[in-house]
Write a protein that binds this DNA or RNA. Structure first.
Lengths: 245, 245
DNA sequence: CGAGCCCTTGAATTGACTCAATGGCCGTGG
DNA sequence: CCACGGCCATTGAGTCAATTCAAGGGCTCG
């Protein structure tokens, strides 16, 4: 039950900042961002609260932007256990999708910390899009990207074994967030495992295998990649177990 | 290597029909459809040809509509075997996504029959969207829907066992295409299995289990559902094997 | 009639899971 | 300062769902 604040004439700097982070493509277009930020209303939620509920149609849903705090996207499985599919922090879109379609959003959002989110109503955003092609292009880009990501990860889940998927994820994450030759995991391994669709035990064992084969060097949540090429090969080809090498 | 025909002033009836099927939401708006249909160009491809290749960026890609023929969407796994993720027929969108983003389309399209497709270039479509809110709304709806579908199926793959997924798929398909109390499978079971992320053997065995438990009646590719409620329960809860019931 | 394809069935294998126990890290409070 | 509890991560042993491999049934078409 998040509380709502009505929209104000002068948008908050925090909201503007979050928008800039979420849509860096609109860097030059401050006017669009400011007009966007004056739409809709903010929501606050306590730690542990639900922002969206999968399946439930919140009528007249809009675009949800996470302004501050941490969110876990996922759903409860049939035993009631929370299964995270990814984690979000401030400056990322929570949901660009429910605004445009009747289809129920397939995931829920759980607040991992006190959270400030902003909801942009669909129709005014649509109007703004018609006036500003750059905004429309950015929106389409974001939507398409999320569709691609979901397809990609669905495909990977269906056809690749876990070592391959993990290798791929590690390299991808390293490209995005790596510092020098070192990658620091920003979440619990438990959550990473859920994201990749396995149990924490399996993740742990597979990381150890990689370590034993000299593919990674692991110290707590710090990872190094001495041999990215071999890791990349592994993400293509299924993982034949060559423990003695 | 599909051959291209340049766009003509008078759009072909087949193209218009396909557009109407793909976007039934635009039923009343013949003007939009006609203007849309006058954009872009048609492509023909022989059976066995590739229309899109995953990963490869076809520069300036547009929106691809399947006008006539059958397409298999999927990709080759690491052994070179084709793994279909879904099948398309005339009047369905092949790709609404690559036009808007740099992200590579995660799947390829393989022609299962001689195929006629139409490519709508991104920029003119964008212009048309700005003039016609209904078109924009429809486009956003389709994009959002495909993102939702992909997320949903990714989630199902990660968390539900196969009997649950199959039960859910059967019921869903029955809602969409069922005639009376009977559903006719429109594709090879082999392909259905691939779509659901299992081998044909597993699909066959699971269908037999359902049959033995009185959940379905199966005669070749004709299915009947004597007890939809129990099937629905199964799609929620994991499948405890009660063979003698 | 035989070849080819799709589907089914069985037996053996395996990748990932569950369950249970242990090890490390940290904050709290005696 | 150390003892304790709590939480996350790791490890091992046993289990199970789904796969692979191999063989056969049924259908269609030349």
């Amino acid at each position: 039950m998040p509380s709502a604040k009505s929209g104000s004439a002068r948008p908050s700097p925090a909201l503007l900042l979050a928008l800039q982070q979420a849509w860096p493509e609109l860097a030059g277009h401050d006017e669009i961002l400011i007009r966007l930020a004056s739409l809709g209303c903010g929501h606050r939620a306590r730690q542990g609260a639900r922002l969206l509920s999968n399946g439930v149609r919140n009528q007249a849903g809009g675009l949800w932007l996470l302004v501050r705090g941490k969110l876990s996207l996922g759903r409860q499985d049939n035993k009631g256990v929370w299964r995270q599919s990814r984690a979000l922090h401030g400056g990322q879109w929570v949901d660009l999708v429910t605004a445009w379609t009747q289809a129920p959003f397939p995931e829920s959002a759980l607040a991992l910390s006190p959270v400030v989110a902003h909801e942009f109503p669909a129709l005014p955003v649509l109007d703004l899009c018609r006036q500003h092609p750059a905004l429309l292009a950015t929106l389409l880009d974001s939507l398409s990207r999320s569709a691609c990501d979901a397809l990609e990860s669905r495909q990977a889940l269906a056809t690749q074994d876990f070592p391959s998927r993990l290798a791929e994820w590690l390299l991808h994450e390293f490209m995005l967030k790596g510092q020098g030759d070192c990658l620091t995991l920003s979440q619990f391994k438990r959550d990473l495992a859920a994201q990749l669709g396995v149990t924490p035990e399996t993740l742990s064992r597979t990381l150890r295998q990689f370590h034993e084969q000299g593919l990674i060097v692991m110290k707590h949540s710090q990872l190094r990649f001495p041999d990215p090429a071999r890791l990349a090969a592994l993400s293509q080809r299924p993982h034949e177990l060559r423990s003695g090498l």
